[in-house]
């Protein structure tokens, strides 16, 4: 019997090859991670950082890589950049206790400013943007399926249950959408990566200093004007040089 290469078979073949490539790790990511670990434990954090940063530059956006990079940067005394890495890892895996611990420890070590959160914002930050998106869309589908059942089913008890499921799924989807929006709002977050940056009243080098931002402070960028950015640190706003901060989301 003669086999023909239909589009479906070709697609299956391509996907299978991609899966194999993923499974066998052709880029040597695992080896690179192990090498970075060895360097870190040999007190060569700068070289370990470089390896982790190479992985990130290659397109890997994994909380483990960011977390380990944060540790390496912290060990080499780059407090601000360590906070960037920990913060990035926390955005990807916000419930990870190790990431939360190291992020908090790094911020407290530098007496840095970190944004305060309201109770509902802390609730949103228990799930990552990716999780919130995935769960939210799942709830969206379940909710509408329940609506369809409630509309189309003739049995009243089934319809009642379906309406309740639809309501619960809808509320959960709204909560997830709010969480995603919250995470997107945090895209403007940056970290002060140079020690003791003076936040000034105006974007001028001789403007009066309003307050000082220690290295590792997490700030929100409000406005950019030339080489100056207006940042908000908790409740205060001031102008600092743009090269003194680094965005968390890259």
């Amino acid at each position: 019997m003669r086999r023909t290469w239909t589009p479906w078979r070709l697609l299956a073949l391509v996907m299978g090859l991609a899966g194999l490539a993923w499974a066998f790790d052709p880029a040597g990511v695992v080896q690179q991670m192990e090498e970075a670990r060895r360097l870190y434990e040999s007190h060569r954090p700068d070289e370990a950082s470089r390896l982790y940063e190479q992985l990130i530059a290659a397109g890997y956006d994994d909380p483990v890589i960011w977390f380990n990079l944060g540790n390496a940067r912290f060990q080499s005394g780059k407090l601000g950049r360590a906070v960037v890495a920990f913060r990035r890892a926390w955005r990807l895996a916000p419930r990870d206790p190790d990431i939360r611990h190291n992020l908090r420890a790094a911020i407290e070590h530098g007496s840095a400013v970190s944004p305060s959160r309201r109770w509902y914002e802390r609730g949103w930050e228990t799930v990552s943007a990716e999780e919130a998106s995935r769960w939210g869309w799942t709830a969206w589908w379940i909710g509408w399926a329940a609506v369809a059942v409630a509309l189309g089913w003739s049995s009243h008890p089934v319809r009642r249950v379906a309406w309740r499921v639809a309501l619960a799924a809808g509320l959960f989807a709204v909560w997830c959408a709010a969480a995603v929006a919250h995470w997107h709002a945090l895209d403007a977050e940056c970290v002060v990566v140079q020690p003791d940056q003076a936040a000034r009243f105006a974007p001028l080098p001789d403007a009066r200093v309003f307050f000082t931002l220690p290295e590792g402070s997490v700030v929100e960028v409000m406005e950019t004007r030339g080489e100056w950015v207006r940042v908000r640190a908790d409740t205060r706003e001031g102008w600092i040089r743009s090269d003194a901060i680094e965005p968390v989301t890259g």
């Binding site: 977390f67 912290f74 790094a106």
Partner: peptide, 9 residues
């Protein structure tokens, strides 16, 4: 500062 160690690959 006490930090959690590197995570496993």
């Amino acid at each position: 500062v006490e930090l959690r160690h590197l995570k496993a690959t």
